[in-house]
């Protein structure tokens, strides 16, 4: 698949926003922090979420009709995401307002946490539900979206705490390390799984001719088409490999070093960069079966 920056930003930004909120929510439920910290945290979370939302509009051909996309929540994970994301943002906002007004926040928190988790599921399922995108069609996909989001959110929380409320910083850093490690393991598991995948579709099933040697000679459009642009990353293999090494280093090991050494802000920035690479790779790695029909120009 061709990685689209709009979608990469959408998923990484809202993932971090959700993770950050979950970190705040945990502190709200189990710990102590001044309202100021929660409100500021919620604001950052909302900025991340809104950033993702804005990025997503760049993915649309008709952003002015975006409102229509809430229609099919019964069947479409995308529709569900479209509903849950603003709801979640509203819940975070309400939760922050509640803190601001010194109200009881428990129920606000419960609702927002549930929405955050739902949003992770929706986002992950958008990809995981496409069964012939075998690289994506696994519970590891939503799990990774959730864990990577949590990890980046916790790192962000550690950075924020270091700045605004140092007493929470070590706990967040520790949690970020734990979440990062888990996410890393899960992501490695996905990589290992995908490395072993055998595509179910082959040229033989694509055209229905049973023969081991089938080569495409022409795809009927020499100047390319939507199908050659949307489903191919078009980068040399080295770039894809480099992206994998980059995210393998940036998503956990390096940020962990910085976190342990007490530099949560660079840790977050590095990790976020790593997530961008991870997401790019996530798309680039997926081999769409339609590509069997677009193998050669002649």
């Amino acid at each position: 698949m061709r990685p689209a920056w709009s979608v990469i930003l959408l998923t990484t930004l809202i993932g971090a926003g959700q993770g950050l909120y979950l970190a705040l929510a945990a502190a709200d439920a189990f710990g102590e922090a001044p309202a100021r910290f929660f409100v500021a945290g919620a604001a950052v979370s909302l900025v991340l979420l809104a950033g993702g939302l804005v990025a997503s509009f760049f993915h649309l051909g008709h952003p002015e009709r975006a409102w229509r996309s809430a229609a099919m929540w019964r069947t479409s994970w995308l529709s569900r995401e479209v509903i849950v994301l603003p709801l979640f943002m509203a819940a975070v906002f309400a939760w922050a307002v509640a803190h601001w007004l010194q109200m009881k926040t428990l129920w606000f928190n419960v609702v927002a946490v549930m929405l955050a988790i739902a949003l992770f599921v929706c986002t992950g399922m958008i990809y995981a539900c496409l069964k012939f995108l075998q690289e994506w069609h696994t519970p590891l996909t939503p799990l990774n979206y959730t864990l990577l989001g949590c990890a980046s959110g916790l790192t962000a929380a550690a950075a924020m705490a270091a700045w605004l409320h140092p007493p929470l910083a070590p706990a967040y850093a520790a949690a970020a390390l734990a979440a990062g490690a888990l996410a890393y393991l899960a992501r490695l598991a996905a990589l290992a799984r995908n490395a072993r995948l055998r595509p179910k579709s082959t040229p033989a099933t694509a055209i229905g001719v049973k023969h081991p040697r089938i080569a495409q000679i022409a795809q009927g459009a020499m100047g390319g088409s939507f199908n050659t642009r949307e489903f191919f990353h078009g980068r040399p293999r080295e770039v894809v490999r480099a992206a994998r090494w980059a995210f393998l280093a940036l998503v956990f090991p390096l940020p962990a070093l910085f976190l342990v050494s007490g530099f949560p802000i660079p840790a977050f920035l590095l990790q976020f960069a790593g997530l961008l690479a991870e997401r790019w790779y996530f798309f680039a790695e997926a081999r769409h079966p339609q590509n069997l029909y677009y193998q050669a120009i002649a």
Partner: peptide
């Protein structure tokens, strides 16, 4: 109604859909 999100094209294993640029 279409917002041009391309998601349906991802969901078609046959590459049968094309976004009009």
């Amino acid at each position: 109604k279409c917002i041009g999100c391309k998601y349906c094209s991802w969901a078609c294993p046959y590459g049968a859909r094309e976004l009009d640029e």
